[in-house]
Design a protein around this nucleic acid. Structure first.
Lengths: 108, 108
DNA sequence: ATAAGTTAGTTACTTTATGTAAGTAAGTAT
DNA sequence: ATACTTACTTACATAAAGTAACTAACTTAT
């Protein structure tokens, strides 16, 4: 039974950010536009899931996909204004993590 | 294949917050300690998953479980200091959501 | 001109996570 | 005694994520 007393905008924001990998993809793109394989190797995500996430995020207006007609075609992903506006959120998480997270227990 | 160039503490924070429902549970507890069924009906989560999440969060030191030996025993969940320290993160998400999220199925 | 490599994905299949519904134990209210 | 509530658990179904192999278009090396 769903009778959420929580603000639907907030809930939607949470569901966007709690989608696995989404926050990490956005965080990665904060350092500038990047290509598919760069993002992939930077955060260790599979091609399939990265492909899904980028489509989602593009659809939600957070990420922009540009086809650059260079010698071999280059596809670049970058943040839109909406995406960049998430920077304070990610920075808060970053500083929280530095204060409160103990690195043990990450068996990768 | 994982070769994350991303800070492991940050990654761990992200994986905690991207666990489905976790952020919502923490957010809900920001307004004070609550019982199982209160959280359940406030955010519309199933008993099973709430039970799992509370155990996870307790294990990570974010949530505290107190058994109060009142007339019928009352079990109260609340945030630890670590949990409360996530408030700025949730507040950032909240204010971002007010500025950028359109409530219904938004196809921008 | 082959052959091998890169990029940006997709497809098929497996594993894990989540959802749903029903059940349980302890206690209360009628 | 019967029905109801709380805080769960169990069993089962479905959805999401992981893995690996594959493709199409192009590039470089032989």
């Amino acid at each position: 039974m769903k009778q959420p007393t929580i603000c639907p905008k907030f809930e939607k924001a949470i569901s966007l950010l709690s989608q696995r990998w989404s926050a990490l993809v956005i965080y990665q793109l904060l350092s500038g536009s990047q290509r598919f394989s760069e993002i992939q190797s930077a955060i260790g995500i599979s091609g399939k899931v990265l492909s899904d996430r980028l489509k989602d995020l593009e659809h939600q207006g957070v990420v922009k996909r540009d086809v650059i007609p260079e010698t071999p075609v280059i596809i670049e992903y970058s943040l839109t204004e909406k995406g960049r506006s998430l920077e304070p959120v990610l920075r808060e998480i970053e500083s929280w993590s530095q204060l409160w997270v103990k690195p043990e227990g990450d068996l990768s």
